[in-house]
Design a protein around this nucleic acid. Sequence first.
DNA 1: GAACTGACTCAGC
DNA 2: GGCTGAGCCAGTT
Length: 108
Amino acid sequence: MEKSSFFQDVYDVVKLIPPGRATSYGAIAHYLGTKSSARMVGWALNSSYVQDIPAHRVVNRKGVLTGKVYFGDSDRMQKLLEAEGVKIKDNQIENFDQIFWDPSKELL
DNA sequence: GAACTGACTCAGC
DNA sequence: GGCTGAGCCAGTT
């Protein structure tokens, strides 16, 4: 972990996401300084789903649970979010604008 | 060591 | 207004 991995930065930010909140790949990528690498953010989680990363709090810019299928069960990601008070409608987060957590603003 | 891929995002048509 | 194409970086093959 001492290795300066772009992934490690992603994990750290995702872990800092408070319960009941969610962020987007682009927001994390922007916080890291590279808005263009939004794909890497999601991919980072895919490569490290085995770790204690609350990846269920990370969704795409539309608030859709794009990676829910990677959790093994399609409903697993949704239930995790609902357990935190996040409303999910058709695999999409309701009031996403309200629960949206921007690391570049919250963490500063 | 080079090519491919990948849970996204933006812009153009 | 919805779909397609191109771009991004780093890990995997």
